[in-house]
Amino acid sequence: MRSPGYFSRAMLGVGLVFLYVPILSLVVFSFNNSRLVTVWDAAHSPTLKWYAALLANGEILDAAWLSIRIALAAATAAGVLGTLAGVALARHGPFRGRTLLAGMTTAPIVMPEVITGLALLLLFVAMEQAIGWPRGTGAVTITLAHTTFCMAYVTVVVQSRLAGFDESLEEAAMDLGAAPATVFRRITLPLIAPAIVSGWLLAFTLSWDDLVTSQFVAGPGSSTLPMVIFSKVRLGVSPDVNALATLMVLAVAIGISAAALLLRYRERRRQRDMQLAAAGSS
């Protein structure tokens, strides 16, 4: 056999089917008329009634709105903190606290969420006892907790993007007399902008999706969307959750396609600019 790889290609097919069949099943059965999610009611399906039920469910809508606000705040804070940490780790050489910073930015990624959640709640309780803030738990404590684990992801993305470029551009700008802030704004920031954007999107998704950490640090009054979904599905399958899942898959698909189109457009424009520059110089 001169061309190996039949086996690996077959496994790739199996793997992709395995990854997509569950998502597909959620989408298909969201249009099913029967309350029994797994029995297709051919006579009365497809139907949009679970979507209507979803939009009439105030608890889910409130939770979704809370989750969006938390994810926006946490992803933005994590974007700033993670960019600072990523720049420090990739560009500052050895400094005091570097090992500590490097360790603390990768540990939250693999740390089991039950431990992170418990540790953060105990911190918030201790802080409230000591300095009277934060008063109780709720949206604020969830946002602080999400920022902490999300910034780790942004750091890794920004750091690995910077590791792919050498420092000659920044050094050249400094040799030409640019101030450090100008170097950062004109050279470093444009280089890492794509990494910051994808880090922010990743952070938003992780915060929007987080259940375990939120459960620990959320007060009795504030339920995020994953918390509401979890308490529903623990009792078994529920068709309006399928409708919700379909809407979320749709949103991700639209977002990813838009990002891919944008990237392709920018790449084409860059190539055109380079051709023009080459033509101009000859």
């Binding site: 099943s25 959620l26 999706d209 979904i229 979890f230 599905v233 919700l244 979320m248 991700v252």
Partner: peptide, 9 residues
């Protein structure tokens, strides 16, 4: 896409 919903599936 949501981890929780994919497990739920």
């Amino acid at each position: 896409t949501s981890f929780l919903l994919r497990v739920y599936a």
